[in-house]
Design a protein around this nucleic acid. Structure first.
Lengths: 335, 335
DNA sequence: CTGTTAGCGCTTTCAC
DNA sequence: GTGAAAGCGCTAACAG
């Protein structure tokens, strides 16, 4: 017997026939309703299902019910640790709630993002979670409930938004408290999730400290190790060199750390660093990164609830973040 | 107009009515066959589709055709950089081939793995790619073509297998060439993808060098930064301490690097390290990790082809790997 | 408590 | 070159 041969899967009709009941009863049993079934009958049906190794066809069910018991997720790059953690959390929470997860990687390309969305929507998903590259990506989703992460797009559009600006201010103020004065910013591309707000927070914190937000101290790059490395190499070789950097993502910070090492710049002594995300990347880097931590499970939960209609996300409410102090900012180990 | 209201999506019937043709013709147009359509008619249909913003219902199509144009992927943990890279690659390749990707994170739990598989299969996916925790996870997939990654499971079972043992031998031999003698192994859990073969390769390379594979020099852990850190802390505090470690994954190596730092052990001077995977984690760590590199795009392509039936993976063929030398092994920077 | 049956949106054979 | 209609597997209203 080759398990690979695509034999026709048993259907509800087969089960009904074997159990000697109607197909409706099989339905009532598998769905526990909407009509009651006698215990003895139920037993017969269950036995037949076991015998045939029957499993309901989710596609037929989806067609009938107009919902697929599935949600979609589109991210710019799953191999980014933060998006990976988000996907993991979402997969787990969705699964627990009885939903499958369709994943679309937009590969940091707006066109592909749109195409991925189209594809997921055509699969009749019940909800769509988008971490978008383009804030105006209106994406006609054909009525599929959609929530944007870290993107305040159209009015009336659902979104769950992290306190990006507040987090950035936390980070930069902390650097100021360390006595740093030339605080640079290595940020995400304009329009990238959270990027603009994090930059605004950087500028606001500097202003509050009476420092100027020098545009020459800003670099933007894709959220990736490689891009962060490249941008950092440039930022750190200009004179006069910054004495601190607020980085908009852990992965970019990893790239910056590597660049600093190559240039013989000691972190935190010569250069204090605080990043954003707070994934395991921040915990195990050298030195460990002081970072604004995003509560991934809470974010995933909020997004899922928003999209599955259990609860609209608190309008205007921001997901709170906190600063987790490690070594890259210059705080003593004991802290 | 609120885009969120779930208005009924236009169906092929709506298009047919608006275009003044039969539903069959609409089908012929969307699918470019199987019957020809007059140019003028086609134009009318296309116009109607545009006007209604029609998009075919993939679920109905799947039910009819008995294939969903979707493939499933189950991994132990998407937030592991290697699995993340794999998911990214697979999402992109599948998308390009016209397939959606259903992602299941098994959360390093065999029960959940089985449940995730069940769920994906019930969604009528056309193929299933599993990176399994349990080698004997026979998983009745109801006839869905299934390929295991790095897991030689049942005979007749499709699998794409990396040259884990060969890669491990490469890694360990390299350490031997550096003059290391007490070469430890920080591996994956028994049965974890590639774990047993990598350990075997470690032992084989030691034997070939006339060294003994001391079981006391072996630790196993989950493929994660945290678990790698914990196991490494234990391994590096026992006396006499190893002078080199072959680590079975990049993420574990990151944990080990952190542990070494905490213990004041200098890498590569006091401890040479080579890991397996060769993701960006290896490129940007401190020091950068010499690693056995897995060709993720090739692996993804092989898995996809195997499962979509374009080509059976070369029986007994192993995906070749190569050793990428960076700094953690002790090679001079110029190398 | 159980059975019959319409119909979800789509593809495709068969007739015109 | 175009249309009518059957049927994919399932649910649930309705009838008994």
């Amino acid at each position: 017997m080759n398990d690979m041969e695509r034999r026709r899967a048993p259907t509800r009709t087969d089960v009904a026939r074997l159990a000697g009941v109607s197909t409706a009863v099989v339905s009532y049993v598998t769905n526990d309703g909407p009509r009651p079934v006698a215990a003895a009958t139920r037993e017969k049906v269950l036995a037949a299902m076991r015998e045939l190794d029957y499993r309901p066809n989710a596609v037929a069910r989806a067609l009938r019910l107009q919902r697929a018991q599935a949600v979609g997720l589109v991210v710019p790059d799953v191999s980014n640790t933060y998006f990976g953690a988000l996907a993991r959390e979402l997969s787990n929470q969705a699964f627990t709630a009885g939903y499958a997860l369709l994943l679309g990687d937009s590969d940091d390309d707006p066109d592909r993002e749109r195409a991925q969305i189209e594809s997921l929507v055509s699969h009749q998903i019940d909800g769509l979670i988008i971490v978008s590259l383009a804030p105006d990506s209106v994406a006609d989703v054909n009525g599929t409930p959609t929530v944007y992460l870290n993107q305040r797009s159209q009015p009336g559009q659902l979104s769950v938004i992290v306190d990006n600006e507040g987090g950035a201010r936390l980070a930069v103020s902390h650097l100021v408290e360390h006595g740093r004065r030339r605080i640079a910013h290595l940020g995400g591309r304009e329009g990238a999730p959270g990027a603009d707000e994090r930059r605004a927070g950087w500028a606001a914190a500097l202003a509050a400290a009476g420092l100027t937000a020098d545009p020459a101290l800003v670099r933007t790059a894709e959220y990736s190790r490689v891009a962060g490395h490249e941008a950092a190499a440039e930022l750190l070789t200009r004179a006069p060199r910054p004495d601190a950097v607020f980085v908009a993502s852990d992965v970019q910070a990893l790239g910056l750390l590597a660049a600093a090492r190559e240039l013989g710049i000691s972190v935190p002594h010569d250069l204090a660093v605080v990043s954003f995300d707070g994934t395991d990347d921040a915990v195990f880097s050298d030195p460990p990164l002081t970072a604004v931590e995003q509560p991934v499970p809470a974010i995933a939960e909020a997004a899922l609830q928003a999209v599955l209609g259990q609860a609209a996300p608190a309008a205007g409410g921001l997901v709170p973040v906190r600063l987790v102090v490690r070594a890259s900012c210059g705080c003593p180990p004991g802290h």
